[in-house]
Amino acid sequence: MGRFLRSAVKSVTTVPLGAVADLMMRSGVNYRPTGTAVSRAAFPELAAEFPPSGQGMFAAVMNAAVGGTWASVTYGNGLFVAVGENSTIGVSQDGLSWTVIMYGETGRHYTDVIWAGGQFIAVAGTDRCVTSPDGYTWTLRMMPAAPAGTTYRSIAYGAGLYVAFHGSNTTASSSYATSPDGINWTARSLPVGVCWRIVRFAQGMFVAMATTNTANYVTSTDGLTWTARGLHIAGYWESLCYGNGVWVAMSGGLAGVNTQLAITSHNGINWTTRTLPVVSSWSDVSYGNGHFIAVSSQSTAGSSVMLTSSDGIWWVARTVPIMNYKATTFGNGLFVALQGYVQNGVAAAAGMTVYLEGATSDFMYLGCKVQWNGKPG
């Protein structure tokens, strides 16, 4: 049963858990279909029950002009920017309406994008990145060639330096590249060679982790001198983020291996194992509005799952619209998660599919699942 809410003047009804139905407001006078945004000012009684603090979270699936395989998404300078295969870049001011830009050679695959140092920068292939001051106009930059069998997979910015790591799921690398401006790059060496997957900067420190079931990782305070470290447990470390004073790393799936493994750290050095409530192929994790959200690239014809956590330690599984989620970020009061690749018969939608969760100070987003005070409605 859906939860029925009342106010002194009006009443609203939420849909049953998991149902795909309308949300009824104003005693049935006004309907809004799943997947639309409603103004808080227009529906004050609903706004009061579901504040923008994250107590009540809404989901919606939106379609943009073109589908694709998306690898990474970021938010900066008032803009969402997503990158993916075949030189595809998606740009949105609100996370709802997207413009698709094709920049670069056919077949060039962007793998990671960030907003840092006053510009967007995305890495691609064995020797290139692109930069943009506004998300719409891009410039190609050359980078040191990645070792044979590897490509640039991740980029971070900190201590006045861009740091880009290359790797693959099968070939180890002991080198990386740095740049003070995203234009002029220098090849550098690492103290250990593994299949690097991701690098991030927070707490005054770079942390880089690898996939292919390894416990090796490295840290650096300046991006130039690195310390090789060992985790207490091996994993397929596909994603890494920092929020609320906590580093969170998620172990994804490789060659059909899925996990329910995550690790957390307050300093990037001492880590603790966390057991997730669901076994899946965790592809990305982000933080915003007091919540971590982890998405999975594994879907079946029947369901998809997402995890949420306020502290990175205790996680709750959420049933979400069916997609193979690849990348997520937070911005403009919204979590945005993008579809990755076709898997287990779950095909890409006719347009770019975006999952939105959260409520801004101005709007609420309605969907097939409504949370009531953090619990299923």
Rank of each mutant, 00 (worst) to 15 (best):
71 A>L: 12
370 V>C: 14
364 M>D: 05
260 Q>A: 11
24 M>T: 13
316 V>G: 02
60 A>C: 07
63 N>K: 13
200 R>G: 09
326 K>N: 11
268 G>M: 08
182 G>K: 00
208 A>R: 15
176 Y>W: 04
342 V>G: 06
343 Q>D: 10
240 L>D: 04
156 A>S: 05
7 S>C: 14
349 A>H: 13
107 G>K: 06
316 V>Q: 09
210 A>L: 12
293 I>R: 04
225 T>Y: 08
164 A>H: 11
24 M>Y: 07
122 A>R: 06
329 T>Y: 03
25 M>R: 10
107 G>H: 04
137 T>H: 12
114 I>E: 01
223 G>P: 04
57 M>W: 08
241 C>K: 05
262 A>G: 14
113 V>P: 01
73 V>F: 03
308 T>M: 03
217 Y>F: 15
236 Y>G: 11
373 N>E: 11
308 T>H: 02
107 G>V: 06
328 T>V: 15
332 N>R: 07
161 L>F: 07
146 A>Q: 03
349 A>V: 02
294 A>N: 00
130 V>R: 01
37 A>R: 06
196 W>K: 08
66 V>Q: 15
336 V>Y: 03
377 G>H: 11
138 W>F: 08
2 G>M: 07
243 G>M: 05
73 V>C: 06
345 G>S: 00
214 T>W: 00
269 I>Q: 11
41 A>E: 11
103 Y>H: 13
85 E>T: 15
127 D>F: 09
96 L>F: 08
297 S>Q: 14
202 A>E: 07
26 R>H: 10
317 A>Q: 04
226 W>D: 03
363 F>P: 00
328 T>I: 14
94 D>N: 15
317 A>M: 01
313 I>D: 09
364 M>V: 07
13 T>F: 09
42 A>Y: 04
54 G>L: 05
226 W>H: 05
106 T>G: 08
231 L>P: 14
39 S>K: 03
62 M>P: 09
109 H>Q: 13
184 N>D: 05
344 N>Y: 03
232 H>V: 15
69 T>W: 09
128 R>I: 15
254 L>E: 11
140 L>Q: 12
107 G>A: 04
99 T>L: 02
160 G>F: 05
52 P>R: 03
144 P>E: 06
34 T>S: 11
191 P>Y: 01
20 V>Y: 13
294 A>P: 00
233 I>P: 03
277 P>Q: 10
354 V>P: 00
248 V>F: 07
